[in-house]
Design a protein around this nucleic acid. Structure first.
Length: 433
DNA sequence: TCTGGGGTCCTAGGACCC
DNA sequence: TCTGGGGTCCTAGGACCC
């Protein structure tokens, strides 16, 4: 038996904790560069704002409907997530943190009334962190996900489902006829693993509701759509196929990619940006104690704007695996030189570290060159990571990222970011009696 | 003016091996 | 006339997730 706990409209809820005046109002959080909506309060959803709606298309709602838009503050969300996850873990013996706002909890061995227990945990998270959650319970992860969707929808849209399923929904506790009614009232596209494409194909094949999918034949599904969807069907039928992953494997690739605040046409700022991305990616790489064998660099023009298109990527192999920022930055910059062509308005670039191996696996060799591995380098990198962790990102960085941080041609637009309420002493809110 | 970022898994096809 | 069988590894592309 599994539970899925997730924060409602998570980023918006984090912002509301520190700005209670946002309660009850339409609020969205924007992606990097204030490009499009990535989180929406219920009121914003009611205005018809879709996930991913471009900001310039919905901006008029500021005036017309009192919409509040905030720039994403990922430091805040990450810290609030840690607090929420710690409390959610109290629901059962094992936990898989699945995303910044969701975790699965294994419920094996938990005694007593699960629904009551879930309500207690939910209330505790709300009081202790200020984040409202939904909890779904089911005999498989896919059913727990579905139950979670129903718990949240029942709360947000009264009448959509029986009201006692709001906030906490245990599908395994429903009598068969009620379960069928709930599944028949849910579109197949809501199922975990059914996206836009497959959802449309299923609809064409006459499979419209979750009940239709549950009653379909797994072998037929497999022939047409493959093993992934077959597994989904079996999970919906109550056969566990996906286990709890409470010790996630190290990443197989690590990326740092960004859209620019404005298009770049010159080589120099592109080199600065890519150097910065390589440094950030290297930091993540060291955090998982890995090393990279290859560095991929890409840059491209906007798919949305007119003008000549450009989309290129280059893979630069490293002579030996490394987690050293200067080595990775050098490789990335070499890649930029290879792919760059003048005359294009580039709006995005990125660095992806590939071919990752644990740093503990070292290929020893006779060192004849002056860039041979050196334990002094590793200590230098650790010192850099510590400084940046303590005093803030960018305290120490490669000179090739440019020295004038404020005037970077490629900097992100973030005009509406809230303070780091919980992670920077200088920005902690002050309570007055 | 103007549309995010970071991942995973599966499959098909080709190269290559014995 | 006409060319096996079985396997691995790699890559690119597609679909999905949040």
């Amino acid at each position: 038996m599994y539970a899925l706990i997730d924060g409602n409209n998570f980023y918006v809820s984090c912002e509301r904790v520190f700005r209670p005046s946002l309660q009850g109002r339409p609020v969205i959080v924007l992606s990097n560069n204030d490009g499009c909506a990535i989180a929406r309060s219920n009121e914003a959803k009611a205005l018809g704002i879709k996930m991913g709606s471009p900001w310039f298309q919905i901006r008029h709602l500021e005036e017309e409907a009192g919409l509040v838009a905030l720039s994403a503050n990922f430091c805040l969300y990450g810290d609030m997530s840690d607090r929420m996850m710690g409390l959610a873990a109290g629901l059962g013996p094992t936990q898989e943190i699945y995303s910044i706002d969701e975790s699965f909890v294994g419920l094996d061995g938990v005694r007593g009334n699960l629904v009551e227990r879930a309500h207690r945990i939910r209330a505790r998270i709300l009081v202790w962190t200020g984040i409202p959650c939904g909890i779904g319970i089911g005999s498989t992860k896919t059913l727990a996900k579905l139950a979670n969707h129903i718990a949240k929808t029942a709360e947000r849209k009264p009448g959509s489902y029986p009201s006692e399923l709001a906030q906490v929904c245990d599908l395994s506790a429903l009598p068969p006829e009620e379960l069928d009614a709930v599944l028949a009232a849910t579109e197949v596209g809501e199922v975990w693993g059914v996206g836009r494409k497959i959802g449309a194909q299923l609809n064409d094949a006459g499979v419209r509701t979750v009940l239709d999918l549950v009653r379909s034949d797994p072998a037929t599904i497999r022939r047409r759509w493959g093993v992934v969807l077959e597994r989904t069907v079996r999970e919906l039928q109550g056969l566990p196929c996906i286990g709890l992953d409470d010790a996630p494997a190290p990443k197989k690739e690590i990326a740092c990619t960004r859209s620019f605040g404005r298009p770049l046409t010159d080589l120099v700022p592109l080199i600065e940006a890519v150097s910065e991305f390589a440094g950030r990616a290297a930091e993540k790489l060291r955090k998982q104690d890995g090393q990279a064998g290859q560095v991929l660099v890409f840059a491209h023009t906007s798919p949305h704007r007119p003008g000549p298109r450009f989309h290129r990527s280059v893979i630069v192999p490293l002579r030996r695996p490394s987690a050293d920022t200067p080595a990775l930055v050098r490789a990335a910059v070499a890649g930029v030189h290879q792919l760059f062509q003048p005359g294009y308005a580039l709006i995005k670039a990125g660095v992806i570290l590939l071919d990752l191996t644990p740093a503990s696996r070292v290929q020893h060799e006779l060192s004849l060159e002056d860039d041979a591995p050196d334990h002094g380098r590793a200590r230098l990198m650790r010192a850099m990571d510590t400084l940046n962790g303590r005093y803030g990102r960018g305290t120490v960085h490669s000179a090739s990222t440019g020295l004038d941080d404020a005037n970077r041609a490629w900097g992100m637009r973030q005009e509406r970011r809230t303070p780091n309420y919980t992670t920077r002493w200088a920005e902690v809110p002050v309570a007055r009696a």
